[in-house]
């Protein structure tokens, strides 16, 4: 891995921001160079949200990802419409098939359809759909270890919410399985 530039996008409330933060945190725990850049402003109030995460072996240059994403994780249709074009040739496009009916238009990408919400519901909480997507993404790219994400989760959750860790771990694993 030289550098991964990931766009994560979805509705507000789908956990897109926290998914990005966890990946960034995990990268930091592995002593990689990382940055996390959110969209901000009125669009955050109920609209679509997205963040750009960079995990790199070298110093992170621009934290902005324009048309050079190596991967995109899209949780809803507007996000697919907006970011499909921004992934580099040969890059990864992970689509939440539970909420997005259409197929990807591009043929020069590695495209994965993941029933994230169904899987999350099977686990028992639709809120972990983001972790299902993240699990799939980590299986594909292996840019950080799943254990690092779990460690990051524990730090972010703190003792009060530590009981939620197993469910999130399961979601990560189920996501990974879904694309095997």
């Amino acid at each position: 891995m030289a550098e991964e530039k990931i766009i994560m996008a979805g509705f507000g409330g789908q956990g897109v921001m926290s998914m990005g933060q966890l990946l960034t945190y995990a990268g930091m725990l592995e002593d990689k160079n990382v940055s996390w850049l959110p969209s901000y402003g009125p669009e955050m109030r109920g609209g679509t949200a997205n963040c750009s995460v960079i995990v790199s072996e070298k110093q992170v240059g621009s934290p902005v990802i324009t048309n050079d994403a190596t991967s995109a994780i899209v949780m809803n249709l507007p996000s697919l419409d907006k970011f499909e074009k921004d992934v580099v040739e040969g890059g990864n496009l992970l689509i939440n098939e539970s909420l997005i009916e259409r197929k990807a238009e591009r043929s020069d990408l590695s495209i994965y359809y993941i029933k994230a919400n169904e899987i999350a519901n099977e686990i028992g909480n639709s809120k972990v759909a983001n972790m299902v997507m993240l699990g799939a993404y980590l299986e594909l790219t292996k840019i950080v270890k799943v254990e690092s994400v779990i460690e990051a989760l524990k730090k972010v959750f703190g003792p009060a919410k530590e009981h939620l860790v197993p469910m999130n771990k399961e979601a990560l694993e189920r996501g990974a399985e879904s694309i095997k």
Partner: peptide, 10 residues
């Protein structure tokens, strides 16, 4: 700028 304010880095 807004980028410095909003982004996360170690």
């Amino acid at each position: 700028d807004g980028m410095i304010g909003q982004m996360m880095e170690p």
